[in-house]
């Protein structure tokens, strides 16, 4: 059996197996409240009339349709969003939440629906060019990460880099670059990073590949991603939906949905539609 075929069969099998709890009495009577930021383009955005739309909105709606889930989407600010899930204000989060060890201690995750990776972004007018463009730096591998960090730090020494608070990227800056002369400025809202980057308050920003891709889609003539793509370690393993610790019922239902849309290529289509490229896993 080829790898793909095996994955397909596996997906179909698990979908069949996991469809059972999804259709069980508990799940059908339950409205699943899902929180998102509504301000993290193109993953989730808000129209003037308050309606949410974007890649992740399409994603959860598709899963809900296939798994017969009754869902309700609400918008929440990012700071406090995970706390809100722990507190039981809602059942799940879909907001580009990267799967990391620290977060796994307090919430459970579904399979990842993006492949992960983070990159620096700069405005062309700033004249900053990071080395090792297009390469991948693996945080778990010292041979790969150490030279990448050295090279990046040499260029960013004395420069200000903006990042959203309490994200994997802010943890990365703090652990790898802050003591090498890079000034880190943290923002409660992710969109403020791009705001300040585009008017020149900060010299560079760092965010997930998907997030940067969205910014570049609108500002590709003025800005560029630069330097290596950082993956692994504290950079996590892509984004997943977060559910309350121990809510295996919901976790399994969502996983079944994800497996189904990965298997038939729907997820890749959605990625192409919203990001202009495939940033999603091709198989589980």
């Amino acid at each position: 059996m080829t790898k793909t075929a095996r994955a397909l069969v596996g997906a179909a099998l698990s979908a069949a197996l996991l469809a059972a709890p999804a259709a069980s009495a508990d799940m059908t009577g339950r409205t699943i409240v899902i929180a998102t930021e509504g301000a993290f383009p193109p993953s989730n955005m808000t129209r003037p009339n308050g309606e949410l739309y974007g890649f992740e909105i399409d994603l959860v709606n598709e899963i809900a349709k296939r798994e017969n889930l009754k869902i309700e989407l609400i918008s929440q600010a990012w700071d406090g969003m995970i706390q809100g899930l722990i507190d039981g204000k809602y059942d799940a989060i879909v907001d580009g939440v990267s799967i990391t060890g620290a977060r796994k201690e307090v919430v459970d995750f579904t399979h990842p629906y993006t492949t992960g990776g983070s990159t620096f972004v700069v405005m062309n007018s700033a004249g900053i060019d990071l080395p090792m463009n297009g390469t991948t730096a693996q945080l778990d591998d010292p041979v790969s990460i150490d030279p990448a960090v050295e090279a990046v730090a040499a260029v960013l020494d004395g420069k200000t880099v903006g990042v959203q608070q309490a994200t994997i990227q802010s943890a990365f800056l703090e652990e790898y670059l802050q003591d090498k002369g890079v000034k880190v400025r943290t923002y409660p809202n992710g969109s403020d990073v791009y705001q300040d980057l585009s008017i020149g308050r900060i010299d560079a920003g760092i965010a997930s590949l998907t997030n940067v891709a969205a910014f570049l889609e609108k500002n590709g003539d003025k800005a560029a991603a630069t330097g290596p793509t950082f993956i692994g370690g504290i950079m996590g393993a892509g984004s997943g939906l977060a559910v309350q610790k121990g809510d295996t019922e919901l976790q399994e239902a969502l996983n079944a949905g994800l497996e189904s849309i990965v298997a038939d290529g729907t997820l890749a289509e959605l990625s192409q539609k919203w990001f202009g490229l495939v940033v999603t896993p091709q198989q589980y």
Partner: peptide, 18 residues
Amino acid sequence: SVTGLVETMRQVSIAAGT
């Protein structure tokens, strides 16, 4: 507005960002 309640300030921030 920091709680996400859509009152004037929050609505204006959303509109300004969009």
